[in-house]
Amino acid sequence: MEGIIAIWQRDLIKFLRDKARLFGSFTMPILFLLIFGGGLSGTMETMMTQNLDVGGDFNYIEFVFPGIVSMTLLMTSVFSAMSVIEDKDFGYMKEILVSPISRVSIAVGKMAGAATVSTIQGIMLFALIPLLGLNYDWISLIQVIPFMFLLGAALSGIGLLFASFINSTQGFQLIVNIIVLPMVFMSGALFPINGMPGWLDVIVKLNPVTYGVDVMKKIMIDVDQLSMTVRETMGLNLTVFGRQVTVFEEILFILAFTALVIAIATLSFKRANA
């Protein structure tokens, strides 16, 4: 336990000392919020509510905001796993690997560090809520934070997997960019994923981000007040094998995914000899 905290704390201290990283990672979500929330919101609303009688009930920005927070979680947590490669480059991984700290603790500590960093960034995005004219219940915002941490942990695991077999930071950034953007687009973060062609639907349903985005939306948006049509339009009736999934099942899926990546990451630290 002590080891997990030590590794977690180290990554956190380094994040807080790195001002460029702290603010630099905001540009992407703000850009997306500007483009999708400001520029495209009219178009998206028209497109999504075509042939539907939803009236003024549908607000695209309200729909996309949780999606963009999830996207920030994804990017920050995956990229935070790059610290593993940096530690290998700068030799610090040796210091960790020759110590008696258990290999599971290394994986969990790295994951907790990335999850914390991404949760902090996600919470910082909440500051934009009043500027965007949005109205989320503050209780739901507080409720969503633990889930953001879980999602951050799960997604950082993806980064850890890549970091275990990629040895350069450049290579890591390249591969991660190739992986991350499709994961965002295929998750319902920016637009609803209803009525996708069959093969794309499979990818969407396998993508852990899909469930993350769905849970975020279900917690943050007051779903019960929305009419059935609006829910359908927002893609909030996510079904797997023709069955609508519950928030509980989605969280279970993400937990299972997290456990799986921890196991794989632990194995990779076991065979590593830096």
Binding site: I5, R10, K14, D18, S99, P100
Partner: peptide
């Protein structure tokens, strides 16, 4: 080769080591 964390202070490096080694 160097295996210190250069972004941390000397004291922080030593404290981390204490925690890794219980």
């Amino acid at each position: 080769e160097n295996t210190l964390d250069e972004k941390l202070t000397a004291n922080e490096n030593l404290m981390l080591h204490c925690r890794f080694y219980n």
